[in-house]
Amino acid sequence: MINKILAIAKQNAKEGLYYRFDLLLYIFNFIIEITVYVFIWLAIYNKGNQILGMTFEQVTTYYILVVSLNPIISWGINETMGNAIREGEILRELLNPISYFNYYFGIRIGELIESIIVGIITFIICALLFGVLLPSSLLNFIFFIIVISLSVVVVYFFELIIGTSAFYTNSIWGVEVFKRAILSIFSGMIAPISLFPEFLQKIANTLPFKDCIYTPISIYFGELNNIEIIQVILKQFIWILILYIIAKILFNKAVKSVTVNGG
């Protein structure tokens, strides 16, 4: 099964890399985004050396990591899946000799390969431009990678749920905006979660999205001890299970109830 998923991933990555110019544009776009963040925070830091316990260097590193991780976490298959459902391509996909979830997981991994390339290049260029802090230790760096990998699985099932809504709505644009909003607020993409008011922090702590961006960056900085990290990983496994079950139920229900029209 893993062989098949990897074969699909490779195929999808090949197709994605065919549009190299697109990827270059993304990188360019991300670098500009980071520059804007850096200058905003530079203006803020002019008045004092530390804000809420973070140095300017930390904040710069935070945003460089956020933007580099962004494609890995927030691209995803919901749009591809939504379009396939709307245009009836799903009929073909349901005839594959491999389950729909496995097939799309392959597609997701293929996309991941592209987004990792974009992320790493963005990170390296921005590190050279603005300077970054290195990970606090090798072990923390390994944990950083593990937590992000699990996050990809978490968001994959979330994307499946979003994509399934295409069965019921004509365009998944609205649902997708909702997904992006949720992700960017609760993952810490817009601002570090430690800056949030308390009630929002509580919500962010329960949802799995914090562990996609904010938590791995905290681990990168060495702000979590090993026990806390293990707790995070356990929480991720629980969310994977919950989202998998929800996605499975919704998708099966949708496939069953939606009668495909045609003579």
Partner: peptide, 9 residues
Amino acid sequence: QKTQLWWDL
């Protein structure tokens, strides 16, 4: 007209 071939490959 639905295809199982990969468009860009």
